[in-house]
Structures are given as structure tokens and as C-alpha cells.
Simulated assay, not measured.
Amino acid sequence: MAATEQQHEQALKKFLDERPELRVELDNLNPLLAQAKGETVAQYRDERLHEAFEAEAERLGLFAWELTLQLTAATPEDYQAQRLEVHKEVAEMAGMDWLEYCELYGLAK
């Protein structure tokens, strides 16, 4: 089961709560930059938050959905179980053999 929108929102909140410097930066964005992109300040801020979240996931060698699961799972074991479940869904949707998929993404079988 892929991460839900609610889980992602919880993960973004936790991510931001753990990074007060990012919150300050996002709270002080130049409104003219939002206007130049044809966005509201809130939309522009949300976009910057998502970019920071995705950059952190990439820095950790994770997909953004994996970081979402990591930040919202009750335990590390729960995270691993959810992560494998999603990877299995992805492999199935891609029509890939599970062992081949695990090898491709460096997953323990």
C-alpha cells in the first residue's frame, strides 16, 4: 500500500518541525517570486517545501515515498514492512520478477 496523502502531510509536518531553519526560510520567501511564477505565496511555499523534502530523500538515497513512510511509521520494523509492500506493488505494476526487482533496487528479498 503506497503512502496516503494523509501520511505524506504528516511526514511533511514532521520534516518541517525537525528543521526550524527551513521553516524560517519558507516563512520569509519573497512574495514577488511567487507572483512571478503566477502562484500564491502559499502555493509557492508548498512547492519549496516539497522540493526540500524530495532533496532530503535523494540525499538519503530514498524515494520521497520512502521518506514519507520512514517519518510516519510507528517503528523501524513497521517502516521496513510498509516499504517492502510498496516495492512489491511497484514491481507487480511494472511486470517485473520480484527477485530481479530486488536486485535492481538493492532490496533484501
Rank of each mutant, 00 (worst) to 15 (best):
Q7W: 01
Q70I: 09
A108W: 13
W65Q: 09
A64N: 06
E54P: 11
N28Y: 10
Q80S: 12
E21V: 07
A11C: 01
E103G: 15
E77M: 02
D27Q: 13
K13F: 10
T75W: 00
L69R: 02
A3C: 11
L49Y: 05
A108G: 15
W65K: 05
A108S: 15
L16M: 05
R59N: 06
K88D: 06
K14W: 01
E47L: 15
P31V: 04
F15C: 06
P76L: 02
A81P: 02
P20E: 03
Q10D: 10
A64R: 07
A36S: 09
V90R: 07
N30I: 00
E89W: 15
T75S: 03
A55F: 11
Q43E: 12
E85R: 05
L67Q: 02
A73D: 02
L33D: 14
E100C: 14
E77R: 03
A11K: 00
L71E: 00
L67A: 05
G38L: 07
D97V: 12
D97W: 04
G38T: 08
Q6E: 12
L71Q: 00
A74T: 14
A73K: 01
T68A: 01
L60G: 05
F63V: 13
Y105D: 07
G106R: 00
M93A: 15
N28M: 06
G106I: 03
R59A: 08
A73Y: 00
V24C: 08
K14S: 10
F15Y: 03
A91M: 03
V24W: 11
E47V: 14
G106F: 02
K37N: 09
Q35R: 15
T72S: 07
E100D: 08
N30V: 01
L29W: 04
K14Q: 08
R48Q: 12
C102S: 09
Q6S: 11
